[in-house]
Amino acid sequence: MSGNHAFGEAAIRAGCRGYFGYPITPQNELGEYMAEHLPQNGGVFVQSESETAAINMVIGAASAGARVMTSSSSPGISLKQEGISFLAGFQLPAVIVNVMRGGPGLGNIAPAQGDYFQATRGGGHGDYRTPVFAPGSVQEVADLTRLAFDVADRYRTPVMILGDGMLGQMKEPVEFPEPLTDLPEKEWALKGRGEGDSHYMASLILDVMEMERHNWELVRKYQAIAKNETLYESYMLDDAEIVAVAYGTTARIAKAAIKRVRKEGVPAGLLRPITLWPFPKEPLQDLARRIEDFVVFEMSTGQMVEDVLLSLEGKGRVAFHGRPGGVVPTPVEFSRILYREYQRQVKSEK
């Protein structure tokens, strides 16, 4: 199954009952999948007039207590930023999938990772963060989509999943967990006051002291997410003397490169962040206690590298190799970089 379809199937099985989206390559198949399968599963599909409208429909449906999702690709995700900030302010759960493509501007439809900052630093206004998952395979698309819905509901927050054009289009075998059926009722949702009191949802808080309290409340939530939900993969790190850091498609290429250079005696390994926010800071710091060299690979001009530098706090040497604009690097290319950086280390130790 393709990554795009897997996003849809996984969402439906996670109890997603509302999908609101707008066509944009390279994630059209996701919307198409939802149009065909969601209504058959008691859900609603709306193709909106714009990505802006879509994210605002998501807010409405989320406020009414439904599990909801929207998806788009880079330019469309830019149009949703205000809405995502509102979701954070409202503390409403929702899953937002970004199948990234070349940018900036209209860019192109090739896979890229240029939206890292936008996703991890909160692309909208105000102090908020969104948990960001980065699947590296179609199986992980399925697993992380379910997790995303769970984290969104548990913490009442929008959650982003960053795929890319390749991950969305390529097909791989995938197994899906059983569909969730009896999701718990959301007490906080808007459902008409009935006999009880009315309640309202507003992200406007004119009293600055109260707005500050609201901000610190959100920070406590983000700290809890960082503590409990950080995910990463360690690959061949036990005996590694040089560490590649990469996520998503780039991580797969890095793994291939690592296998190649190990044959040439370069003990390389990979640390793969699966949550881009919260970023796996501690594992990197642990590695830095025994390893000097880090090489960050991205399909961008270098964004995650900043988080690596922040995490290492000056320890070790961090090299960066990136290919922006939709260019997909090759394992050979990465191997050469790893080989060169390792030789530099060997020379400096002499």
Partner: peptide
């Protein structure tokens, strides 16, 4: 004194679409 939600500027009908679609009984 009813259930209410304050929309982002201009997006009220999109909010309402989302609500009504998932909760047509409201």
């Amino acid at each position: 004194d009813i259930d209410m939600i304050e929309s982002a500027h201009g997006r009220g009908t999109a909010f309402a679409t989302g609500i009504k679609r998932v909760r047509p009984d409201l």
